[in-house]
Computed example of a mutant assay.
Amino acid sequence: MFQSLRYSAAALLCGLSLAAHAAADVPALKSAIDSSERPAALKARDPYRHPLQTLEFFGIAPNMHVVEIWPGLTGYTDILAPYLREHGEYIAALPASEKGLAAYKQKLADSADLDKVTISTFAPPAKTEVAPPGSADAVLTFRNVHNWISGGYDQAAFNAFYTALKPGGTLGVVEHRAKPGSTLETMKKSGYVNEDYVIALAENAGFKLVARSKINDNPKDDKDHPAGVWTLPPTLKLGDQDRDKYLAIGESDRMTLKFVKPKGADH
């Protein structure tokens, strides 16, 4: 299930998680974010995604083993892979798509900084083992929960993340935030998700919520758009219709939640 590019043997070690007491190396993170190897199109989204503050909030240290769920071509690979390259490990858990896998592998091949990435498959409900059980220090997901809700395997996803993490490990979630009380159908249609719904998914899996952050809040986003969250950049689904209006709003309002797998938990 796991396809390693210069796979680090240290990833197979299992013990107490570093996540509970680790701290981000801010200068090293900033160096990865500012690197000339990182695509300009991704750097242009930093004012909305706040990668430095977000990864610092999640406590991602350079010696951790970190799984990012469905990073695709626009996720945090270009930051996390170089940052974890020497002392930790970055695992990209990808959907079961031959086209997507080929594109991702080409991305890795195009940069010397991305030569130590481990690839796993996350394609629920059939494939959910994103890393060996109890091996990861952190699992991170950015703007994916709405897809799992639409697919009907949102709880299975959170259960899988819990299994992959070491006791004490961190689950970091960033997701488009719905208006409180939004129905399940509204969430599926709009791409915005109730914050309490995400917290319930995590807690049902066994996680404890330990912190929330306003890093990715956007008060300009009233969540009332003709094509849901995809009305806003970067998708701009309506094309030129009210384009300036949506550009002025910017990317979506997002929750940023940090959960921990209790230290006494079994793998």
Score class of each variant (00 low, 15 high):
S4R: 11
T163P: 00
D224F: 00
Q155I: 01
T235Y: 12
A96E: 15
G191L: 07
R254N: 12
G191Y: 10
E89L: 08
K245P: 03
E129I: 14
A92C: 08
D222L: 04
F259T: 02
I91T: 15
H176W: 07
A178Q: 08
V130H: 05
F57C: 11
T163N: 11
G191D: 10
V260A: 10
G168A: 07
Y7W: 02
P62Y: 07
Y90Q: 00
P124F: 02
L108V: 05
G191Q: 03
P262T: 04
S35A: 15
Q3P: 03
V174F: 06
P132F: 12
A102C: 02
D253A: 10
S213H: 12
D242Y: 10
F57S: 13
G134F: 01
T186W: 09
H225Y: 14
H176Q: 12
L209S: 11
V139G: 07
I199E: 15
I79C: 05
A28Y: 01
N63S: 14
G206T: 13
P219Q: 04
A200H: 13
E251P: 07
V210Y: 09
P39T: 02
A20K: 07
I249D: 02
I215Y: 11
K258N: 12
D222C: 05
G134T: 04
G168D: 02
P233A: 00
A211D: 15
F142I: 04
W70I: 09
S35G: 10
P133I: 00
V210W: 00
A102D: 07
P125G: 12
R49C: 01
A227H: 03
I215F: 11
D46A: 10
L236H: 02
L29S: 11
A23V: 12
V173I: 14
V26L: 06
K105P: 02
A81H: 05
K245H: 08
A202W: 14
A41Q: 06
E251F: 11
R254G: 02
P133G: 02
L108M: 13
L94R: 05
L184I: 15
G15D: 12
A103W: 00
A205K: 13
L171S: 11
S4W: 06
A11F: 07
S182V: 03
A157N: 08
G250P: 05
K116R: 14
A211N: 06
D224V: 03
T183E: 09
D240M: 10
T121G: 05
F158I: 01
Y76P: 03
G191C: 01
T235G: 00
L80S: 01
G168M: 06
A178V: 01
T141M: 15
A22S: 15
N159F: 01
K220G: 11
N159G: 05
D46C: 04
A11M: 09
L94G: 05
